[in-house]
Amino acid sequence: MTAAIATDALGKRYRRRWALSDCTLDIPAGRVTGLVGQNGAGKSTLLNLAAGLLRPTTGTIEVCGGRPATDAAQLAKVGFVAQDTPTYAGLSIRDHLRLGARLNPGWDESLAASRVERLGLDPGQKTGRLSGGQRAQLALALGLAKRPELLILDEPVASLDPFARREFLQVLMEAVAEQELSVVLSSHVVSDLERVCDHVVVLVDSQVRLAGEVEALLDTHHRLTGPRRTTREMPRDQQVVSERHTDRQTTLVVRTEGPVLDPSWTVTQLGLEDLVLSYMELPTSDLTGRGDGTTGAPSLEVLK
């Protein structure tokens, strides 16, 4: 299967600042991928590159097997819902549907109509008067009715209240179940993505810090708690992702394929949020090598 998004040494520079650098990724098709990172980490830049709204400074990017936005066929493959789910405030819902039908060759009229009907909104209403949740749902309905192979959503739920957030993700997940659809969505809040993603990419300071399948990541990361000690004594197959020490206790997050055998550790499972945060708090300087040289830098390869 072709990757939904494949990048090779992709970079984007704005004047002097690199918004994204040396990004090599393989985001599988048919999956829901969460793109996580703090504000300014490069999420929107990567998504805009994938949508073809930006051109790379270095490297390459392929989306559903083609260069972004090169021709009409390529444009039809990718749906893009920009940050804060913008709509045309002066146009009605009906206008938006008409616009969608005119601009998209694969437009699914009945899907659009039924989704809008489910929202229970008056089609004559101007979208400038919709609530944030309603506008987000409309933008999602438009994105889905385009029938794209890949739907890209930039921070779709960030500005929504918890109820609207849940509703939005429910509709999105139903669409994934019904249509053959790859989804890439970004958020700076990991807990928003925990239930919906089966693949995750973490960006820190314009670079890919971690990428992989959620289940595989959860299976290979553990939190170890025990009496205070240094990480020098750790077995070679256990990579220390993060460490905290008090005067008596040491708490580590380690990545390992095998079991943790040392009985002095209490081993607990990590949720996705804690796992991702432990990678995000890792200082960038630690990536090139660790002071003690025994544990090595945490591996940041893309899990296949």
């Binding site: 429910q170 994934v176 179940a177």
Partner: peptide
Amino acid sequence: VATLAINPNT
């Protein structure tokens, strides 16, 4: 999926 808002693959 519709009740829990989780990934269908799950």
